[in-house]
């Protein structure tokens, strides 16, 4: 039984006004096959948590740990974390000019598995995932994220999630900017990945909307850089109705 454990995580970023403390002692444990929703107001540190787990150089870990089955991730480089089984579906995936989706996916798959995938099985997997995500075959020859619409970029992220088969995935506001059809398609992809591989999910979102399609087992409310409250799916519904106001009374968001 795999587990991703975040303990007492403190993270800062450099800003023009100096060092800014964002995460102030985050504790979370995500088990295999579990879905944890992280909700919270803007500026509460949700995305910082996502990037810190993935190892983005802009975020400085001041203390705490992130372990995958007991192995410390914070000592590892970004690519080592990915090869250990972590995945981050990004809110704003960047364009990579001149690198085709198909070349990128095969290079990533080869890196993750330590060997090139067998051609026939790979093409079959790629085709079926793309079909399920309603991505036209022509996507394979397009440059990564170049000229993609918002919805296409998100589907491309989930395509990678399905093909790279990580143990744990952080989905950073994957629902933002999606219309309801795209939201359903993307959610189905997440659910498929979960069914097929026992993926553990940290689902970061501002809204309850995606939780109608990707059912959370746990909901954590993030306020001012730490978990302020946690509960089951009913907590998300309550937040939908009440908003975050009651958490913000007297809290210093900055």
């Amino acid at each position: 039984m795999s587990v991703l454990k975040i303990e007492d995580l403190h993270v800062s970023v450099e800003t023009e006004q100096g060092t800014k403390q964002i995460l102030r002692g985050v504790d979370l444990a995500v088990g295999e096959g579990e879905t944890h929703a992280i909700m919270g107001p803007n500026g509460s540190g949700k995305s910082t948590l996502a990037y810190a787990i993935a190892g983005h150089p802009k975020y400085h870990v001041e203390g705490g740990s992130v372990t995958l089955d007991g192995e410390e991730m914070l000592d590892k480089s970004v690519d080592e974390r990915a090869r250990a089984g972590l995945f981050l579906a990004m809110q704003y995936p960047v364009e990579i000019p001149g690198v085709s989706v198909s070349n990128f996916l095969r290079t990533a798959k080869t890196a993750i598995d330590g060997q090139a995938p067998a051609i026939r099985g790979w093409i079959k997997d790629l085709d079926s995932s793309m079909t399920a995500l309603r991505m036209d075959k022509s996507f394979r020859e397009r440059n990564v994220n170049e000229g993609f619409s918002g919805g296409e970029k998100k589907r491309n992220e989930i395509l990678q999630l399905e093909l790279l088969k990580p143990k744990f995935a952080v989905l950073d506001e994957t629902d933002s900017g999606l219309d309801v059809d795209a939201l359903k398609i993307v959610s189905e992809g997440v659910n498929r990945a979960k069914e097929n591989t026992g993926l553990g999910i940290l689902l970061i979102t501002h809204y309850n909307r995606i939780l109608r399609y990707v059912k959370p087992d746990f909901v954590h409310v993030f306020v001012a850089g730490k978990v302020a409250e946690q509960g089951g799916p009913e907590l998300a519904v309550r937040l939908e109705n009440e908003g975050y106001d009651r958490f913000l009374q007297g809290a210093n968001v900055g």
Binding site: D79, A82, P93, V94, F104, T107, A111, I112
Partner: peptide
Amino acid sequence: QLFYLQSRGISE
């Protein structure tokens, strides 16, 4: 771009 590619397991 480097971060994106590395986050998919590709070495620097």
